[in-house]
Design a protein around this nucleic acid. Structure first.
Length: 300
DNA sequence: CTAGGATCCTGTCAGC
DNA sequence: TGCTGACAGGATCCTA
């Protein structure tokens, strides 16, 4: 799903279409995807907290939108703008089977699509946004955080793999599976390294790398295909142009030529160069095997 | 408190 | 073709 760069791309794009526009109706097609009573009102501000998007209305209500894994936002008016989880026919056939919510504006519609229904839109009183349980837990983003602070937090989770820790939004905010892999590759740190073995210098490298990969992505319009159906027709292309390891297993490492491998860490597919990213000697964590027929249902 | 796994849900793809 | 299990760019809840 959209990580920080994608949500930022969406925020910047949507501003051009729905800022100062009036929501005249909201149609909820899937109850699970919309929490609260659908409000009306004019959008006066679009904010982002980590991977969450906030639309503030002129009547004291706000809409928090979280796309989670498979959410998409598609604005359809005189012009079209779509971003979020990548799919082939982003803007075709709307609404479609995956459309969960439709927000009607005076001059267009905003579709919230979400295949897996993990994402949601939630109504919050504007002054309460920062007290929302999700928002409240978010740590600083890499640009606001000092290396020392990150290092101290890593020490508090010294027995967890570094990748699992940097995916935790309460440790550092904004990284998801793509940028965690890319940041660790750039910092030359193996994802299975225990956090307690990360040095202060390495913590700083992680921070700088996270900033760099996410900035590159924001500048290229995100990795999740943002499609402006306008004169320029631009589209996010981070994965093709900038990703060094993500979804590149089997390909040569751009740094040393060794084959990129894929393992499982913290339950997530994880890409790395085993030559550039080595594990410290006294590191006892092992990669999970790709299988173990887990979860029989009814075991609870 | 930390660490790890299961879970929410739908769709796709590889392997029999 | 049809079935089955694994997996998927996230975050929370539960257990030990």
């Amino acid at each position: 799903m959209p990580e920080l760069p994608e949500v930022e791309t969406i925020r910047r794009g949507l501003k051009n279409f729905i800022l100062r526009k009036k929501i005249c109706k909201i149609e909820v097609l899937c109850d699970k995807s919309f929490i609260g009573a659908p409000p009306k009102g004019i959008v006066i501000r679009i904010r982002r907290f980590g991977k969450a998007l906030i639309l503030d209305l002129d009547n004291g209500k706000s809409l928090m939108i979280h796309l989670r894994m498979t959410g998409q936002l598609i604005y359809d008016g005189k012009e079209r703008y779509a971003a979020g989880h990548p799919s082939e026919n982003f803007t075709a056939n709307l609404p479609n089977r995956q459309t969960r919510v439709i927000i009607y504006f005076d001059d267009g519609k905003l579709y919230f699509n979400d295949q897996r229904k993990f994402g949601f839109i939630k109504v919050i009183e504007t002054p309460e946004v920062e007290n929302d349980s999700f928002i409240k837990k978010l740590a600083k983003e890499p640009w606001q955080m000092q290396a020392e602070e990150l290092y101290e937090k890593l020490q508090r989770h010294k027995n967890s793999c570094i990748k699992a820790v940097i995916l935790d939004q309460s440790i550092i905010c904004g990284l998801g599976n793509i940028y965690a892999d890319e940041s660790l590759f750039m910092a030359k740190i193996h994802p299975l390294t225990k956090s307690g073995l990360i040095t202060p210098a390495e913590a700083e490298k992680i921070l700088l790398s996270a900033r760099e990969v996410m900035e590159a992505s924001i500048n290229s319009g995100g990795s999740t295909m943002a499609t402006y159906v306008r004169a320029d027709g631009t589209k996010g292309d981070y994965l093709e142009k900038f990703a060094q390891v993500f979804r590149r297993e089997g390909q040569p490492c751009p740094r040393c030529g060794h084959k990129i491998t894929k393992i499982k860490v913290a339950g997530r597919g994880t890409h790395l160069c085993p030559r550039c990213q080595t594990i410290p000697k006294d590191n006892v964590i092992h990669a999970q095997k790709n299988s173990a027929p887990t979860s029989r249902k009814g075991t609870k």
